[in-house]
Computed example of a mutant assay.
Amino acid sequence: MKITMYGAEICPDCVKSKKSLLALKHIELEYKNIIGDTATLKEFLAYRDNDTIFQEIKDSGRIGIPFFILENGEKTFDIGEFVDLPTENEDLESYASSCSIDNKGQC
C-alpha cells in the first residue's frame, strides 16, 4: 500500500507515525516535509485551505499534521484506522513543545 504523508520533523506525532510506517514492509511511504521547502508547504496548504477534512482542524487552531493520503485517494489524520502500526514505548515528549503554540503537542 502506498501512503503519502505530510508532516514535519518538529511534530511528535509526525515523527512517531513516520517511524512506524517505515517499519512496515508492505507500506510504500512518500514522506513530504512541509517545512523542508516552500513548494511542499504550498502543496500541503492547498489541501488545508480547500479540503473539508481540515475544517475542524482549522477551527481549533491546529496545523493538521500528520496528514495522510492513501493510494485510493482517501485522506485521514489517523493512519491507525487503516494500518496496524507497531507499538513502541519511545518517549517523544521532548518534541511536543515544538509542535504547537500551546505547548501541548497537538498539531
Score class of each variant (00 low, 15 high):
Phe54Asp: 15
Phe54Trp: 13
Phe54Gln: 14
Phe54Leu: 11
Phe54Val: 14
Phe54Ile: 14
Gln55Met: 14
Gln55Gly: 13
Gln55Arg: 15
Glu56Ala: 07
Glu56Gln: 07
Glu56Trp: 05
Glu56Val: 04
Ile57Ala: 04
Ile57Tyr: 00
Lys58Ser: 09
Lys58Ala: 03
Lys58Thr: 10
Lys58Trp: 02
Lys58Cys: 04
Asp59His: 02
Asp59Tyr: 04
Asp59Thr: 05
Asp59Trp: 04
Ser60Asp: 12
Ser60Lys: 14
Gly61Cys: 07
Gly61Met: 09
Gly61Lys: 08
Arg62Pro: 04
Arg62Ile: 06
Arg62His: 07
Arg62Met: 06
Arg62Lys: 03
Ile63Val: 09
Ile63Tyr: 07
Ile63Ser: 10
Ile63Leu: 12
Gly64Pro: 12
Gly64Met: 06
Gly64Asp: 09
Gly64Glu: 05
Gly64Ala: 09
Ile65Asp: 06
Ile65Gly: 05
Ile65Glu: 05
Pro66Leu: 11
Pro66Phe: 03
Pro66Trp: 03
Phe67Pro: 12
Phe67Cys: 06
Phe68Glu: 13
Phe68Asn: 12
Ile69His: 02
Ile69Tyr: 01
Ile69Cys: 08
Ile69Pro: 11
Ile69Glu: 03
Leu70Phe: 02
Leu70Tyr: 00
Glu71Pro: 04
Glu71Arg: 01
Asn72Gly: 01
Asn72Cys: 01
Asn72Asp: 02
Asn72Val: 01
Gly73Cys: 00
Gly73His: 03
Glu74His: 07
Glu74Pro: 08
Lys75Trp: 00
Lys75Met: 04
Lys75Pro: 08
Thr76Cys: 00
Thr76Gly: 03
Thr76Lys: 03
Thr76Asp: 01
Thr76Val: 00
Phe77Ile: 00
Phe77Glu: 05
Phe77Pro: 09
Phe77His: 06
Phe77Leu: 06
Asp78Thr: 14
Ile79Cys: 07
Ile79Met: 12
Ile79Phe: 03
Ile79Val: 07
Gly80Asp: 13
Gly80Met: 08
Glu81Ala: 02
Glu81Phe: 01
Phe82Met: 08
Phe82Glu: 14
Val83Thr: 14
Val83Ser: 06
Val83Asp: 09
Val83Ile: 13
Val83Phe: 04
Asp84Cys: 08
Leu85His: 15
Leu85Asp: 15
Pro86Thr: 06
Pro86Trp: 05
Pro86Ile: 03
Pro86Lys: 07
Pro86Gly: 11
Pro86Asp: 11
Thr87Pro: 09
Thr87Glu: 12
Thr87Val: 11
Thr87Met: 07
Glu88Pro: 14
Glu88Asn: 15
Glu88Met: 09
Asn89Ala: 13
Asn89Lys: 13
Asn89Glu: 11
Asn89Arg: 10
Asn89Cys: 11
